[in-house]
Design a protein around this nucleic acid. Structure first.
Ligand code: MN
Ligand code: MN
Ligand code: ZN
Ligand code: ZN
Lengths: 146, 146
DNA sequence: TTCCTGTTTAGAATTATTCTAAATCCATGT
DNA sequence: ACATGGATTTAGAATAATTCTAAACAGGAA
C-alpha cells in the first residue's frame, strides 16, 4: 500500500483505458521510475531496468517512456540542453537543478502558484503548460527532498 | 538612438571589458539578433548573418553566440528539446511557446514576480536562475508582441 | 617585421533521440 | 487449438544540434 504498489496497479488500468497493453517492459520501466525518484535520464533508466530485465533494449525504454508520458503517468523534465529526465511526481511542482551535483530536486508549490502565474499572461494567450525551473546550489541534504 | 544602435555601441565596450575583441563576426551576429527579436535559432541566425557576411561559418556563429551569452548581452532560451533560441531582451521575462505556430513570445513580468518565486524555495536552496515558460496557443496577433 | 594570442574556419566527432524494418507477442475470431 | 493481424519489441542505422579539432588568419605589441 505504498505509493509504488498503488501506482503500479494504476498503470495497467491507465494503459488499458488508453487502448494500450500493460506489457512487462512498460511495467518495469514504470516501476524503476517510481522506485528512485531522482529524475533519471533514459540511459539511467535503461541501466536500472536491465538489472531486472537484461534483454530489454534502449529503444524500448524510449518507447515505454513516451507511452508513459502520453498516458500522463510520468512527467518529462527538460533542463537546459541536458538529456531529458523523467519524474513520477504528478503534483504541480517546480524543479531545482543543482549546478554542483547535477541533481534535480522537486519543489512543491502552494496550491495557487501556477494559477497565479497564468494570470500574468496577456489576453489572447492560453497556456496549457506552465514550467518553472530554478538553477543554483542546494544545501548538501535539503531535508531529504532527494 | 534606437535600441539597436545603442546596444551595438554597448557591444564593443562589453566585449573589451571582458578582455575579448569586438570582431566583425561578433558584431554582425549581435546586430542580427537585435534586428528581429523573434528568438531565432543558431541556424536561423546563420542564414541571416550570411546575407551580410557570406563567408562566416556556422561554427563561428556558435562561437559568437556563446561569447554574447557569456558577456550577458544575449539570453539563451531552451524550450523542450527544440534547438536553442537566442533573445536580446535582458529584462526579467518569461517565454510563451506557441505550439501552433512555433513562435516564441516574450512575456513581461511584474517587477517582483521572480523575487516572489524565489521565496518558494525551501531553506538551503539558493537559485541564481529562475526560468518560467508557458506553452499553448496565442491569438494570431497578440497586440504585437512579436 | 616577428611574435603572440585570440579568433575564425571547415570538417569531423559526439550524442541524445528517432527511425526502420524485421522479429515477437498476444488478443481475438474461427 | 489454430490462424490472423495489429501492437510491441528489438538491433541497428539514421538524424540533427552542438561541440571539438586542428589548421589558417588577424592584429596588436615588442
Ligand atoms: Mn510526444
Ligand atoms: Mn556556456
Ligand atoms: Zn519532478
Ligand atoms: Zn525572450
Amino acid at each position: 500500500m505504498n505509493s509504488t504498489a498503488k501506482s503500479c496497479a494504476a498503470l495497467a488500468k491507465q494503459l488499458t483505458d488508453s487502448g494500450l497493453r500493460p506489457t512487462p517492459q512498460r511495467e518495469v520501466v514504470f516501476k524503476v521510475i517510481l522506485e528512485k525518484r531522482d529524475h533519471p535520464t533514459a540511459d539511467e533508466i535503461y541501466v536500472r531496468v536491465k538489472s531486472q530485465m537484461p534483454t530489454i533494449s534502449l529503444a524500448t525504454v524510449y518507447n515505454c517512456l513516451e507511452t508513459l508520458v502520453h498516458c500522463g503517468l510520468v512527467r518529462q523534465v527538460n533542463l537546459e540542453r541536458a538529456p531529458t529526465r523523467y519524474c513520477p511526481n504528478l503534483h504541480e511542482h517546480a524543479h531545482f537543478h543543482d549546478d554542483t551535483t547535477g541533481q534535480v530536486h522537486d519543489i512543491e508549490l502552494p496550491a495557487d502558484t501556477i494559477k497565479e502565474l497564468r494570470k500574468l499572461l496577456p489576453i489572447g494567450f492560453d497556456a496549457n503548460t506552465v514550467e518553472l525551473a530554478f538553477r543554483g546550489r542546494a544545501a548538501s541534504d535539503p531535508h531529504g527532498s532527494n
